[in-house]
Design a binder for these strands. Structure first.
Lengths: 190, 190
DNA sequence: ACCTGAACACCGTTCAAGT
DNA sequence: ACCTGAACACCGTTCAAGT
């Protein structure tokens, strides 16, 4: 059943190693040369498997998003938004990776699908709302992860770190709650 | 009144040229070396004026945000959000520049202030809401501008370009409207 | 105070050539 | 089919030295 494995590496495997490198060193240090070294291969070898670094990052983005669970019935917007956020938070700089590839993947992604499923099906503005929620989650999580990066190489006080985490969560809940409330109200006006 | 101009360039001037380069070639091509060439100077000369490229980009970010008008009374949330978005759209890749420096500028920025001023002063969740709105605007505009970049070097159909612009605007209005509705409702519950 | 020149340690990508 | 080796055209940053 598994496809023939003549070469040493296939796309799937390379994406896995890239994800590992991402978690250990962050996006700025995820270079084609480092990835190649990790695979015991020349950098140029990667260009047989991927057209470009963009192409590689798009595959990494897809893998990050694949962690989002299937849209299940009865999921409310807050739960759906949390599922997307948590998938992004699972890997270092996950939001930035997804964002950088989001423009090239125009079709409704897995993320968009879960969010859409948590909104009323009869309102035609629901697609717009789902997109807006996705953009909020991406913006929010990107900024959160960027601050993590800043802290790690020792810029500010470690004292406020727990505070920041709590505030981040509160901002997220506030954002989604307001949109939920707004959607309910828009709906109750028929 | 003007401070002494002994050297050929000061920070203000360099930021202006950087912004011009940004508009003409985009963020990936805004390199220290290109900027130096544009200023008829060696790249190393820039490091007398700025500690690092990050430092330079932070100054560029501040200049982009400086275009946001003062928070005036009676401004509603939609108008305030538009003011922030329009400032970001004024320069190519503006949202990405601001986002990349946002983590290092933790204090309430000019953008946060306008948004905050458009929300009720008596609700203590208003700060959370203002931050959430800012994160939505940044996420939204970053994705919009990334798609512009993708189109420009000729990926997809030019036919749907106008369509995209209209959809982008609709998503933005939908997002802000829903949050406004939600905020009203949260407020009317005392 | 402000800038040059040279160097260091890197990048992404291409392409002929190997197996 | 898959990879090597070498090259091309770049990066950000540091630092002694100049003026």
């Amino acid at each position: 059943m598994t496809p023939p494995r003549t070469g040493r590496h296939d796309r799937e495997h390379i994406v896995g190693v890239a994800l590992d490198l991402l978690d250990r060193f962050g996006l700025p240090d995820l270079t084609m040369r480092r990835l190649a070294t990790e695979l015991d291969v020349q950098a140029s070898a990667l260009y047989w498997h991927f057209d470009s670094k963009q192409d590689l990052l798009a595959a990494v983005s897809d893998r990050i998003l694949a962690r989002i669970p299937e849209p299940s019935a009865g999921l409310d917007l807050l739960a759906a938004a949390r599922a997307v956020r948590d998938a992004l938070l699972t890997h270092r700089d996950g939001a930035e990776v997804v964002m950088s590839s989001a423009a090239l993947r125009p079709g409704p992604s897995r993320a968009q699908d879960v969010l859409r499923s948590a909104l009323p099906g009869d309102v035609d503005d629901a697609d717009l709302a789902a997109t807006a929620v996705l953009q909020f989650v991406l913006g929010h999580t990107t900024l959160v992860q960027q601050r993590m990066h800043g802290e790690s190489h020792g810029a500010a006080s470690t004292a406020g770190a727990l505070d920041d985490r709590a505030t981040d969560a509160a901002v997220f809940e506030a954002g989604i709650s307001l949109i939920s409330l707004g959607a309910d109200r828009a709906r109750s006006r028929h």
